[in-house]
Computed example of a mutant assay.
Amino acid sequence: MVEADQVLELVEMRIIIESEAASLAAIRHTEEELLEIKESLEAFKGTIKNSAEIGYEADYRFHHDIVKAAHNSFLLHTVENLGHLYRKALAYSLTQRPESRKQVHEDHDRIFEAIKNRDAQGAAEAVREHLEHVRMKVMQG
């Protein structure tokens, strides 16, 4: 099982990688990639309505699709190589406060909108804010 300290370290790394990846995705995404990100967003939204489903796989896919849309193979390989840790950490953080899944979806909406609008700075800021919410949730346990 993943420990809170490990999740916090992963969140730090994700802030560094994913905020820049979202910025690049806002500039570089194709319409097909935007659709993939939107589908992942909707899949996670569906888990909010189904309390039996944690939603960590849809959450991972959303973040993965953003990194993919950045068009940087090293960023993508990094996220994919750490995919198993991402999934464990996401499962951990989503089960800490199940009621916070709505906040996660709202954060994801802001990230998606910034990417869709090709707002690189806004996308980076939205990811940082989202991951700060995750950090606070894990710290509160």
Results as ranks from 00 to 15, higher is better:
Glu31Tyr: 02
Ala25Pro: 10
Ala123Lys: 00
Lys38Met: 11
Glu36Ser: 13
Phe74Ala: 13
Ala70Cys: 10
Ser100Asn: 11
Leu8Phe: 05
Asp107Met: 01
Ala21Val: 08
His133Pro: 06
Tyr86Thr: 00
Ala25Asn: 07
Leu10Gln: 09
Ile115Asn: 02
Asn72Trp: 00
Ala22His: 05
Val104Asp: 14
Leu24Arg: 07
His133Phe: 07
Ile115Asp: 07
Ala4Arg: 06
His77Phe: 10
Glu53Asn: 09
Leu131Lys: 02
Val79Thr: 05
Lys88Ile: 02
Asp59Trp: 00
Ser73Asp: 14
His71Ser: 11
Glu9Thr: 08
Glu53Leu: 13
Ala26Ile: 03
Leu8Ala: 05
Gln140Arg: 13
Leu94Lys: 08
Ser100Gln: 09
Ala58Phe: 01
Ser73Arg: 02
Ala114Leu: 10
Lys102Gly: 14
Arg110Asn: 15
Glu31Pro: 09
Ala126Cys: 11
Arg118Val: 07
Asp107Phe: 06
Glu32Ser: 14
His108Glu: 12
Glu99Asp: 15
Gln103Ala: 13
Met13Gly: 08
Arg97Tyr: 07
Ala114Met: 05
Glu57Gly: 03
Gly83Lys: 10
Tyr60Glu: 04
Leu76Gln: 10
Glu31Met: 09
Val11Gly: 04
His84Val: 08
Ser73Asn: 12
Leu34Lys: 07
Val67Thr: 14
Ala89Pro: 05
Ala126Thr: 06
Ile27Trp: 04
Arg101Asp: 04
Thr95Ser: 15
Leu76Tyr: 04
Gly55Trp: 02
Val134Ile: 05
Ser73Leu: 10
Val104Gly: 09
His63Arg: 05
Gln140Trp: 07
Leu75Lys: 02
Ala91Tyr: 06
Arg110Cys: 12
Ala123Gln: 02
Ala52Ser: 15
Glu53Tyr: 01
Ala89Glu: 01
Glu36Trp: 05
Lys68Ala: 14
Val2Ala: 12
Lys116Asp: 13
Leu82Thr: 09
Leu131Met: 08
Ala25Met: 06
Leu35Tyr: 10
Asp5Ile: 12
Arg110His: 13
Glu18Phe: 01
Lys137Met: 14
Ala89Phe: 03
Glu42Val: 12
Ser73Glu: 15
Val7Thr: 13
Glu32Gln: 12
Ile37Asp: 07
Val67Leu: 03
Gln96Ala: 15
Gln121Asp: 13
Ala123Ser: 12
Glu113Pro: 03
Thr95His: 06
Val7Tyr: 02
Ile48Phe: 00
Leu35Val: 11
Lys88Cys: 01
Leu35Pro: 03
Ala21Thr: 06
Lys116Arg: 15
Glu32Thr: 11
Gln96Lys: 12
Pro98Asp: 11
His130Cys: 09
Ala70Lys: 00
His130Met: 08
Ser40Leu: 01
